Computed example of a mutant assay.
Amino acid sequence: MRASVMALPFRRTTAAAVPTMRWHRRLVVCLLSSLTLLHAPAAMAVLGGDEATIQEDQKRMKAQRRLAVAGTFQVHEISSPDGSTVKEFVAANGTVFAVVWHTRLKPDLEQLLGSHHSEYAAAASEAMKRPGIKRGVVLRRGDVVVHSSGHLNAFVGKAYVPSLIPVGFNIDDIR
C-alpha cells in the first residue's frame, strides 16, 4: 500500500513575500499615524506675527494660557490637556519673536514659522541630503534659527528671528 500525500493548505512564505508583508505593516502604521495627526490640536503661533494670534491658539488647542512679563518682553505659555506646551515670546511692540514647543505630536512648522517656513524648508532639505540619522537639527538660514529634535511622543524645539529680538534680551532665555 502506498501512502498518499495530501497537500496541506498552508501557504509558504518566500523571501520575496516578507518585504511585502513589512510594507503592508508600514502602510497601516502610516495611515493610523495620519489619522492621529488629523485630530491633534494645531498650534498657530506665527513667528514674526502679531500677538493677537495667541488667543486663537489657546482656543484651537483647547488649552490654558499663562502670561509672564519680564522687562521688555512677555511669554505666553499655552498648555494643552495632553501635556503639550507652546511658548510664544512677544516683544513690547506686540511681535512674536520666538516660539518654543514641547509636544507629543510633531507640530505644524509651516504654521509656527509663518513666512519663515520657506527658509527652514530649504535648510532642512539640504540637511537631509547629508548621510546619517537626524534626531536633532539646528538650522540657521536667512533671518531664522530653528532648533528641533524629537522621537515618538516627544517633540521639542525652538525658533526665533534674530532681527526681531528686543535689545538686551539673552538668546539663552528662549527655552
Rank of each mutant, 00 (worst) to 15 (best):
residue 19 P to N: 12
residue 93 N to F: 05
residue 147 H to N: 03
residue 60 R to G: 04
residue 47 L to D: 09
residue 138 V to C: 00
residue 161 V to I: 09
residue 92 A to Y: 08
residue 171 I to T: 15
residue 18 V to Q: 08
residue 8 L to Q: 05
residue 124 A to K: 11
residue 16 A to V: 00
residue 2 R to M: 01
residue 132 G to D: 08
residue 77 E to S: 10
residue 21 M to R: 06
residue 100 V to F: 01
residue 162 P to C: 07
residue 91 A to T: 03
residue 86 V to G: 02
residue 89 F to W: 04
residue 120 Y to P: 06
residue 93 N to P: 01
residue 119 E to K: 09
residue 104 R to F: 02
residue 11 R to I: 10
residue 152 L to C: 12
residue 1 M to F: 14
residue 125 S to M: 12
residue 37 L to H: 07
residue 21 M to A: 14
residue 156 V to I: 02
residue 101 W to A: 02
residue 144 V to E: 05
residue 87 K to S: 12
residue 3 A to Q: 06
residue 54 I to C: 08
residue 3 A to G: 06
residue 78 I to N: 04
residue 120 Y to C: 08
residue 32 L to I: 13
residue 75 V to F: 08
residue 25 R to P: 13
residue 27 L to I: 14
residue 10 F to T: 15
residue 110 E to C: 01
residue 151 H to S: 12
residue 30 C to E: 04
residue 57 D to V: 13
residue 155 F to Y: 01
residue 97 F to R: 05
residue 125 S to L: 11
residue 64 Q to E: 15
residue 21 M to G: 08
residue 6 M to G: 09
residue 143 D to G: 08
residue 117 H to P: 10
residue 150 G to C: 02
residue 6 M to H: 13
residue 64 Q to G: 15
residue 39 H to K: 11
residue 72 T to G: 15
residue 62 K to A: 12
residue 9 P to L: 05
residue 113 L to V: 07
